[in-house]
Design a protein around this nucleic acid. Structure first.
Length: 723
DNA sequence: AAAAAAG
């Protein structure tokens, strides 16, 4: 990295520099009337030729190398599927010339010299993506301040390492940055919403009653939880005070177009925001639901097997047990003595599985692997923790290896398998299992999910991967950007498939499946696979084979189910007592706010705890989950983001601080414990007047639970606390 | 209500 020396991008005379700081809106500094109307010609053929000479061959994006098989298939040839021409909805997306407009990337020669910032080395692709400049069909990105890539700047720790700010010419030429209400104008940092929104702590010894702060062990121990130490840094950040120059910039007043945007301070909370429609700048982009191309299709749904799914709209009363799919059942005894090799997996994969601790197949694996290898569409139902990931992961890799089409390791090859999961954590976890299996036969995987900068994912795709593991949002995003092409996907897996058919997931999943090879193989797996997946099965899985493991119901499980009838006001104290054990405890709440509150409450009570929910940024989510897996804390308070699929060794107690509304949710939450035959306890807290509802839910889940009425201090609570 | 994109 110290030797890194990128060819210095041209700063003068080049096409990019002549456009620097060029605004598209009248009134913008650098606005050019002659360019405003017509699509901008950012790169002449000459420019491009010169430019490609500057780039080193090895760092070139794969596009150039593809000319052998017909130019740039990804960004142009493939686009028809997603282009404005056929799907007008994507037009706005297609109108992004702004990348060329953005002065930053191509015009920062100084980055090359900065040896202390190694991460930029990886990003060589950025400055060398001709595709950005080439996309002349995308003219109207100018309004948009390149949202997707900004967060990265904010996340970067190295802020403090940028003393040279003042010297850097590029800074002052970045209109976008100047536009941001100066940091000092953000009062929101001081009274951060979360803090002020915690009046509900009232019951709790409130903040003002903490004179004894110093004595309290837990507080002083907090710095050890990565997050905490970072908080004070807001005040320390030197960057703030060192950027007075921003205020002087006259540019502000010359940018009327940005003034339309509601000022930062006018955004009380994301939740309250009347969405898309009130944001002029985003208005260009059709909101998800407003995409004609997607709306063109609803007719299909009318003919669906389960039209009622549409009206369901998540009322808890509708929590019904759908008909079980008729499945071929396998019994554990049938599997005895069978090896992975017997099932048809190759030597490398079998060795890798053994290395990973999977010496011989679990029943669900023995049931599904042969059919997956045979190329069938497969539905697999195996209870939580029964080894479903390997059940689809291993044969998927085997198949890809067998039919590699001679394209092994070819640069920029299109991915051939896709694994979809409902949460990022699950996608990450699946990849952790599948990746080593894939690597054992020379195949590559990459994770494609949101909440993290996309460039790493995109450059992995450009290098070429075989298997994608991800969540729907980012996958769709990259497809729309023309950076991900699913047309070669011959195997698609939906983990937690029934959940992926729930409202909010179904449509994205359908859209994604449509992008895959039409005759591709599809695998649906879930512990609670039922006819809720009929919509997808009818559309995408002709002649599926269905497998389950006989006798694998909750009654036969290793989980002790307890229901505690409590007074609402006692909830926190009771959870505190339950969570005070030495074993790993997972607490589920219905809302993010309560998850956060409860984890703070436990910490205040001297119980190291952390939280996991969608209000946290991805870095913190990953870190907090890691705190539990590593054992640095014993208690994790989470929303249902952690309900499905997440595997943490040795969770001995699951507490449902809020009873679930759906029986399936109960089963999945409970499934975080008692994994792989280990013992576990699930405690569900509810009030007396909800007991009947609880009984009904347990009935649907086919669970027999012990019900007790308890109050804080009861010995039963200490008995139930995780050992 | 949560999750999933960017936020």
């Amino acid at each position: 990295m110290p030797n890194f020396k990128k060819p210095a991008p041209k700063r003068s005379g080049g096409p990019s520099s002549s456009h620097r700081a060029t605004g598209s809106t009248p009134g913008h500094r650098g606005y050019r009337a002659d360019e405003a109307g017509a699509p901008k010609q950012r790169w002449t053929a000459d420019d491009r030729a010169r430019r490609s000479n500057t780039a080193t061959g090895s760092d070139r994006p794969p596009f150039r190398g593809r000319t052998a098989d017909g130019g740039r298939p990804e960004s142009t040839d493939r686009r028809p599927n997603w282009t404005p021409r056929e799907k007008p909805a994507y037009q706005p997306r297609g109108e992004r010339p702004a990348y060329g407009d953005r002065p930053a990337r191509t015009e920062r020669p100084s980055y090359g010299d900065r040896t202390e910032r190694p991460s930029y080395n990886d990003r060589a692709a950025r400055t060398e993506r001709p595709s950005y400049g080439d996309r002349t069909e995308r003219p109207s990105y100018n309004d948009r301040p390149a949202r997707t890539e900004r967060p990265a700047y904010g996340d970067r720790a190295p802020r403090t390492e940028r003393p040279a700010y003042g010297d850097r010419a590029p800074r002052t030429e970045r209109p976008a940055y100047g536009d941001r209400p100066a940091r000092t104008e953000r009062p929101s940092y001081g009274d951060r919403a979360p803090r002020t929104e915690r009046p509900s702590y009232g019951d709790r010894a409130p903040r003002t009653e903490r004179p004894a702060y110093g004595d309290r062990a837990p507080r002083t121990e907090r710095p050890s939880y990565g997050d905490r130490t970072e908080r004070p840094s807001y005040n320390d950040r030197p960057a703030r005070t060192e950027r007075p120059s921003y205020n002087d910039r006259p540019a502000r007043t010359e940018r009327p177009s940005y003034n339309d945007r509601p000022a930062r301070t006018e955004r009380p909370s994301y939740g309250d925001r009347a969405p898309r429609t009130e944001r002029p700048s985003y208005g260009d982009r059709p909101a998800r639901t407003e995409r004609p191309s997607y709306n063109d299709r609803p007719a299909r749904r009318d003919s669906d097997f389960f039209p009622s799914k549409e009206q369901k709209s998540f009322t808890p009363q509708d929590d019904v047990v759908l008909e079980r799919l008729e499945a071929e059942a396998i019994t554990a005894t049938e599997v005895e003595g069978v090896t992975f090799a017997d099932l048809g997996l190759g030597g490398n994969i079998v060795r890798q599985l053994t290395e990973m601790g999977a010496a011989s197949p679990f029943p669900i694996q023995a049931a599904t692997i042969p059919d997956v290898l045979a190329g069938k569409n497969v539905l697999g139902r195996g209870k939580t923790g029964s080894g479903k990931t390997i059940a689809f992961g291993a044969p998927l890799v085997e198949r890809l290896m067998e039919n590699n089409g001679g394209k092994n390791r070819q640069m920029g090859r299109k991915p051939r398998a896709l694994i979809l999961a409902p949460t990022r954590e699950l996608a990450l976890q699946i990849d952790r299992t599948v990746q080593p299996i894939a690597r054992s036969v020379g195949l590559f995987t990459t994770q494609i999910y949101g909440g993290v900068p996309q460039y790493r994912q995109v450059s992995a795709l450009q290098r070429g991967v075989d298997i994608i593991v991800g969540t729907p949002g980012r996958i769709e995003d990259l497809i729309e950007q023309g950076r991900l092409d699913l047309s070669d996907i011959t195997i698609t897996v939906l983990d937690e498939a029934d959940h992926m058919c729930d409202l909010g997931f179904l449509e994205p999943v359908q859209r994604i499946l449509k992008e895959t090879a039409p005759d591709g193989q599809r695998l649906l797996f879930s512990a609670t696979l039922d006819k809720g997946v009929a919509t997808l099965v009818n559309e995408f899985l002709p002649n599926p084979s269905v497998h389950e493991v006989a006798g694998e119901d909750q009654a036969s499980s290793t989980i002790d189910h307890r229901v505690l009838l409590i007074e609402q006001r006692d909830k926190r104290a009771i959870i505190e007592q339950l969570a005070s054990g030495d074993g790993k405890t997972l607490v589920f709440t219905r809302t993010r706010a309560f998850a956060e509150e409860m984890s703070d409450y436990l910490e205040d009570a001297g119980i190291p705890a952390t939280s996991l929910h969608g209000d946290l940024n991805q870095a913190r989510r990953t870190r907090n989950l890691q705190l539990l897996t590593s054992g640095r804390v014993n208690v994790l308070v989470a929303t249902d983001v952690a309900a499905r699929g997440i595997h943490v060794d040795d969770i001995t107690l699951v507490i449902q601080a809020d009873a679930p509304e759906e029986y399936k949710t109960y089963l999945h939450r409970a499934g975080r414990t008692g994994r792989a035959g280990k013992q576990g306890t699930v405690v569900t807290l509810t009030t007396r007047n909800r007991r009947r509802k609880m009984d009904e839910l347990l009935g649907r889940a086919e669970i027999e639970a012990t019900v007790d009425q308890v109050a804080p201090g009861d010995a039963l609570l200490s008995d139930l606390a995780a050992l």
